[in-house]
Design a protein around this nucleic acid. Structure first.
Lengths: 340, 340
DNA sequence: CTGAAAGCGCTAACAA
DNA sequence: TTGTTAGCGCTTTCAG
């Protein structure tokens, strides 16, 4: 009579009735508490299984004040660099029973704020942001709610926010120095939209620092952040009056792929006629012809660290430390000494 | 005295006290109910803003029995095809206040089941799965909980489950026919791991159907699903005793990129010496040299449909209809008529 | 249009 | 080791 047609969703209460134990005991079993008799646990588990019981996560969250959910807002999922990053986070979180909720901002700060607030509204206990530049109102909102945040892909957060990532400026500088050390004095630097993207701005900044320090001449060219952007810019540049550069540095590998294609189309030999360097070390970089010299960003490692830091904070109140991960130049076939 | 040091988290109750209205009214305002006096609403909103109130999503979920969360289990995020898919889903869901929780299975059915259950346990109201083949125990679990599921990337679900995707077998067949129609009679077909991947198996099946129907000779070669797999297989094949194929059909674009690179390395002209065709239409396919003939999968459209179907089911109990999306061949430079 | 009150299903003291 | 009993914070009838 209690459960006419198996239709009513059953809860701890029903289980208690079925097994003869109390809801407290049921709850203990559900939470793997050590204070339960083995036989009791067995019986309860059996009932749970037989009844096809599933616990109500909302009720649990309400009672414990924990949702075990963390939110990430990234510019887009369409770039494998972010997908790889989230993949690593997800793996790490899953191992400890956390869920990852994702949202995309399209590199827009207002959208980012809106989406981040939505994530909080949906129960995220911690938030992962990309880059160091965010709306102040968002940061105030988060700090008011005491919600842990981590800025990623950068090594210095805004307003003292913790960051886990790499030093974009230093890497840009490193890349430029490397090329100069090979004898290149005239460089073309291709990059994606600067607007709303502080990682790109930092890389450019580093490149310029390296340029003035070495006296190399660099020309900056901004384009869309995709293969098409790479081919188009390369085409424009090669057709321009003074192509003169002996090397092209792309601040993203996707752009380098475009350049590589365009060079092939025009019969420009890489690295014979032109050296090419990227940034990211995507999947294909080791296999292209020529293979691409690039900077290997520690994307996956970054994801793992971010996840761990957030869980440490949430589970054990460990402070989140800013972390700068190293990234190295992976030298492959696409660059060569400048002809003497 | 009520709120000593601004430390205690305030709720509807506190707001009620502050504004002089009842918690019911506060709740109505929070939910944009029409039954609230404009002035009352204004006052409440002001208080909410001033107090920096944020509603507790768990309590809301418990009271409404809705979490507005849907879960997706995909093999991996590392392949842009899935990232693109999820991106579209996320965009669509976000517009209606739903959140997307993702989990990865690594193409393993048991892991998939585990992860799907976790998602449910975390509050997912609906589940998105990749492919048509899943553990029966998972499907039973889902149907027992009356949790809507959609199989994606396929056009026919297991056990009558709804599916939204494309007809992999038909597309494989279509691709093969296309190549044969160009005069190719001897083909190499490169594909990723068949195990635990019914989409790949279906594509192969279609290819074989096309082969027997046209009398074309096809050689299957399985490899890892990445650029490296493409280059390696191509290298092996080109070095083999009887390379004879006049065209290579890759059941994923990433493999085609690898083949393209390897052909370039060996001075094999595409499509002069060898035609090359892919499957997916990734970002770079239109820009490679030669540009890649491929099958454009409606990934984003699929995501949009999936999201809409799930929300329709959840919000308005609309049944989820299986949907087969069309995919077309995008003809570009990488294929040519076989030399006569 | 607004208030009062009854839960949603679970967990966590506190007792026993 | 197990039972009892309050809530967690919000929504939602039902009155008024």
């Amino acid at each position: 009579m209690e459960n006419p047609s198996g239709t009513k969703k059953l809860g701890v209460r029903a289980l208690a009735k079925m097994t003869g134990f109390s809801t407290g005991t049921i709850s203990r079993v559900l939470n793997n508490s050590a204070l339960v008799n083995a036989e009791t646990r067995r019986q309860v588990l059996e009932a749970i299984d037989k009844a096809g019981y599933t616990r109500n996560p909302a009720a649990r969250a309400l009672a414990t004040q924990r949702t075990k959910t963390i939110g990430a807002v990234v510019p887009t999922l369409a770039h494998s660099i972010f997908a790889r990053f989230l993949n690593a986070i997800e793996q790490e979180l899953a191992g400890r029973g956390y869920a990852l909720v994702i949202a995309t901002s399209g590199e827009d700060a207002d959208t980012e704020e809106r989406r981040a607030r939505e994530l909080i509204d949906l129960g995220a206990e911690g938030v992962i942001l990309s880059g160091a530049v965010h709306n102040v109102s968002l940061l105030e909102f988060l700090s008011a709610g005491k919600i842990p945040v981590i800025c990623t892909s950068v090594c210095k957060g805004q307003n003292g926010l913790p960051a886990i990532g790499y030093d974009n400026a230093a890497l840009g500088q490193k890349a430029l120095r490397f090329l100069v050390s090979l004898g290149h004095k005239n460089l073309l630097v291709l990059h994606g939209p600067k607007q709303n993207n502080d990682r790109t701005r930092l890389r450019i900044e580093g490149v310029m620092t390296g340029a003035s320090e070495t006296g190399a001449k660099v020309q900056l060219l901004e384009t869309t952040l995709d293969v098409a952007g790479g081919t188009k810019s390369a085409a424009d540049y090669f057709s321009s009056k003074h192509p003169g550069a002996s090397a092209v540095l792309c601040l993203s590998d996707v752009l380098a792929l475009g350049v590589l294609f365009e060079a092939g189309r025009r019969g420009i030999s890489v690295p014979g006629d032109l050296s090419l360097m990227g940034f990211d070390d995507l999947d294909w970089a080791a296999h292209s012809v020529p293979s691409l010299t690039t900077i290997r960003l520690p994307t996956a490692r970054m994801g793992t660290h971010v996840a761990k830091a957030l869980m440490g904070k949430l589970d054990s109140a460990e402070p989140i430390e800013t972390l700068r991960l190293d990234a190295e130049i992976v030298q492959r076939e696409s660059v060569a000494d400048v002809k003497t």
